[in-house]
């Protein structure tokens, strides 16, 4: 089924260089229609550069960007008519009011006049629309930027770190709004972030970029599986060394992290249960037995070390 669904956004072997410095290597993004695609990577990995390439702001050294099945380089203006974007900090004119800021882009896109009030309402800025944008807080600016991106009711939304500067409440609101747009209105959304915690709460698909290479791309469950495969079981006991000698089979892959702590790769629930039972049977005190998920940093490090794209 997957192969028959045409991709809404696709990059084919995208390369980008800044002067002589290579920034992106062979990036193959594949975004299916109706998905909420989380584009993850540490700062400086090439997220913003990729986003700019997707909008035709930068010209690729080689490769191509396809939106709605068409080459961006050939039909840029026509394709951008169906794209809303928020790149890094929102571009706001401080001398204009919030409403006038929306109005400027509305005129530029030739969108119906009534949309200005609608999008301001949608992001909850109606009451502050008359105030100059320079008085807006970081969170309000971000919301105004989102309102501007939503003006043309675009089929594709490209949002670069949209939760930057938002407080916890604002982050939740933004997340709910994006999920609503995706599920109820069938919008396709690409959201970049450096926080996996943020992405895993809303994304349906995830791409991970590191040092300009796409090191993982797939659905969120795919990423979860990859993470669980790398989970670690931590055993806390009296004497780690003697435990390992007592149970050589069950503790074959274990390392002694501290005199009373053992680390071993998580294998299965059965294995964990058996280990607990055997330790108790061998008269060893079991102070703690827990599963540790690798952190975002661990996952990234692992993904970059292996340099394999699990597409």
């Amino acid at each position: 089924m997957k192969s028959t669904t045409p991709l809404l956004l696709e990059t084919r072997s995208l390369h980008f260089r800044f002067g002589q410095r290579p920034i992106l290597h062979d990036v193959h993004l594949q975004v299916e229609p109706g998905s909420l695609y989380g584009f993850l990577g540490p700062n400086g990995a090439g997220k913003s550069t990729t986003m700019r390439l997707l909008l035709g702001l930068l010209r690729p050294a080689s490769g191509s960007v396809h939106l709605f099945g068409h080459d961006l380089a050939r039909h840029r203006v026509a394709l951008l008519d169906r794209v809303g974007a928020l790149i890094e900090n929102p571009s706001l004119y401080d001398h204009l009011s919030g409403r006038e800021n929306v109005e400027a882009t509305r005129r530029l896109r030739g969108v119906a006049a009534g949309r200005t009030a609608e999008v301001l309402e949608l992001v909850g800025l109606t009451d502050n629309a008359h105030r100059p944008a320079k008085e807006y807080s970081l969170g309000m600016r971000q919301r105004l930027g989102l309102a501007i991106a939503l003006l043309s009711d675009p089929d594709l939304l490209l949002l670069d770190e949209p939760t930057n500067g938002l407080d916890p409440n604002g982050i939740i609101e933004m997340r709910e709004l994006l999920q609503h747009l995706c599920r109820q209105h069938g919008k396709t959304i690409v959201v970049s972030s450096h926080l996996i915690s943020e992405i895993e709460k809303m994304a349906t698909h995830v791409g991970v970029i590191q040092e300009g290479r796409l090191v993982f791309q797939g659905s969120l469950p795919d990423l979860r599986r990859l993470q669980t495969g790398r989970s670690r079981l931590v055993v806390e006991t009296q004497d780690a060394e003697s435990c390992r000698n007592l149970l050589p089979r069950l503790l074959a892959g274990a390392t002694v992290a501290a005199p009373g702590t053992l680390w071993l790769p998580w294998l299965s629930q059965e294995h964990t249960a058996a280990l607990a039972a055997e330790l108790v049977a061998a008269n060893q005190p079991l102070y703690g037995l827990r599963l540790e998920q690798p952190t975002l940093e661990d996952t990234f490090l692992h993904l970059t070390e292996s340099r394999t794209a699990a597409v």
Partner: peptide
């Protein structure tokens, strides 16, 4: 320039 709006402007459907 002050509004860092060039990136926004060139991402709109105008040539």
């Amino acid at each position: 320039t002050k509004a860092t709006a060039w990136k926004h402007l060139y991402a709109q459907p105008v040539g």
